[in-house]
């Protein structure tokens, strides 16, 4: 474990995503992100976590989160050990997947980079937010 990492694991219980946003707030504040960007990180994280809550069906009912403070960037990894999902289907319109598609769009709209790795053994979402955008 590097000294610039923060680990958190949360049970899949109602509103536990807020525990993660509180940690995100402190980490981003420590990195001197401005308040609007901190809020963007928090909402994106909520989406990543509730996706895991709603769809992973993981046996350990736990979401694993890592914050990596890397210079000007905060990298957040949200991982579950459920059954994974079909990313292409999630972005399409069918009713049962529509809400999940919204969550993915939100994460992509609020973060600078979002990578999703879905396998039959779980899903890992890696999101990056830069303290200074390239157009600033």
């Amino acid at each position: 474990m590097d000294s610039n990492e923060v680990f958190l694991q949360i049970p899949m219980l109602p509103n536990m995503e807020l525990a993660a946003t509180e940690t995100a707030h402190r980490v981003a504040e420590f990195m001197q992100f401005d308040p609007d960007k901190i809020d963007e990180i928090k909402i994106a994280m909520i989406e990543g976590i509730i996706n895991a809550f709603e769809h992973s069906q993981s046996k350990d009912k736990t979401v694993y989160i890592k914050f990596l403070m890397r210079g000007d960037e905060l990298e957040v990894t949200i991982q579950d050990f459920g059954h994974g999902f079909d990313l292409d289907s999630a972005k399409k319109e069918p009713e049962q997947l529509r809400k999940r598609g919204h969550g993915l769009n939100l994460m992509e709209g609020l973060m600078d980079r979002v990578d999703i790795y879905a396998t039959p053994n779980g899903t890992k979402v890696i999101m990056v937010k830069r303290r200074h955008s390239s157009d600033e």
């Binding site: 807020l18 909402i43 909520i46 989406e47 509730i50 709603e54 809400k99 919204h102 969550g103 939100l106």
Partner: peptide
């Protein structure tokens, strides 16, 4: 209200 999620917005 300070926070929302996509299910609430839906």
């Amino acid at each position: 209200t300070q926070l929302v999620n996509s299910i609430g917005i839906s």
